[in-house]
Computed example of a mutant assay.
Amino acid sequence: MQGIRDDRPVIIGISGSERAGGNTDLALDYAGALVRERGAVFRTVYLRNHRISPCSPCGDCNNRLSPCALPDDMPAIVEEMKRADGIIYAVPVHGFGLAHLMQIFIERAGVGYLRFDRPLANKVGGIIVTGRRYSDASVHNQLVDNLLLNRMILVGSGFPALLRNTSSEPGLHDTEGLEALERMAHRMIDMTLLLRKHRSATGEPVLPLADRNERVVRQRSASLTHS
């Protein structure tokens, strides 16, 4: 019905896989079902369906004071991330590293948009990595660094959600990986509800807003040095 506000927590799943219906999509679908069972909203962003330009050779990323001007779908995706309570990055291992779609995405999102005011601060973050056998932990570690850079809250689940499949057919056969994914999804919802309860009781975020952007601190320090 129109006019009724939906206050359910919102989790965004971002798929960095080129393969529709592959292991990464299946894992995100599984996470989405768990989130919805908890009464929250789950939406999936498939990067393969969006136009995302690689970083250009303009060279002013470290100095510019406004978002990137390259015309693509990044602004809309970033706005959807800002509206969410939590974000799950899901990505396959390609060539012993992060799949290129996700690599381009985190570079453009971070350098072009998120670094100015760290709008993802205090949002709950989760990571799913799919692969055959090798380098999944390295890819997971890279995404952990990215979430921490953006001041997000990474909820531990005992073990990282690394799902392995050596078959040529997509499938969720890694029992331990699925258990880790399940714990991660439930703990993300638990943390989201806890953060909402804190804001409702105090009217304040868990972390002070002044802690959101290290660039502001550096700029202030530089101004004091040159004054």
Score class of each variant (00 low, 15 high):
D190F: 12
V216I: 14
G3V: 08
H198Q: 14
A185R: 04
H173G: 10
E176V: 11
S227T: 13
F105A: 00
L70M: 15
D211M: 14
R8D: 10
A76C: 10
E79A: 15
A31I: 02
R51Q: 10
E182W: 01
L163P: 00
L162A: 06
G22C: 05
V45Y: 07
N122H: 12
A109R: 01
L224C: 01
G156R: 13
S223G: 00
S221I: 06
Y113G: 01
N141S: 15
A222H: 05
E18W: 12
R212E: 13
A185C: 11
I88Q: 00
I104T: 12
L194K: 15
L162I: 10
Q2P: 14
L147G: 09
D72R: 01
P119H: 02
L181G: 08
E107S: 05
R5N: 06
C58S: 12
I104L: 10
R51S: 09
T225V: 06
I52A: 07
G97D: 07
P92N: 05
S223K: 05
A180M: 09
Y113K: 01
I153F: 12
L163N: 04
E37D: 10
G126K: 02
V144N: 09
V91L: 07
E107C: 00
L194H: 15
G13H: 02
T192M: 12
P57S: 13
I14N: 09
Y30D: 05
P205D: 15
Q2H: 15
T130F: 09
A69S: 15
P92W: 07
I128K: 04
G86Y: 08
R36S: 03
R64A: 15
A20E: 05
V129Q: 11
R51T: 06
F96A: 00
V41I: 08
K123I: 05
V129R: 06
G131I: 04
P160S: 08
H50F: 09
G112R: 03
T175P: 08
R19V: 04
M188P: 10
S200M: 15
E37A: 03
E204W: 12
V78G: 07
S221Q: 02
V216T: 13
P208N: 10
E214A: 14
A121M: 10
A185S: 14
R212P: 03
N122W: 13
L149K: 12
A40D: 00
M102R: 00
E80M: 09
D7S: 13
Y113A: 02
G95Y: 03
G59M: 07
H186M: 11
E182A: 13
C58M: 13
A27V: 02
D190L: 09
G39C: 01
Y113F: 08
T130A: 08
M102F: 06
A137Y: 13
V124N: 02
S56A: 14
G158S: 00
E169W: 09
L65I: 12
A84T: 06
V124E: 03
H173S: 08
E204Q: 15
P71S: 13
R218A: 11
K82Q: 03
L194P: 08
L65H: 15
F105C: 01
D25S: 06
Y30N: 03
L224T: 04
I153M: 05
R218D: 07
V216L: 13
Q219P: 06
G158I: 02
L47R: 05
R36T: 01
D117A: 08
D190C: 08
A90D: 03
E182C: 11
G21H: 06
L65G: 14
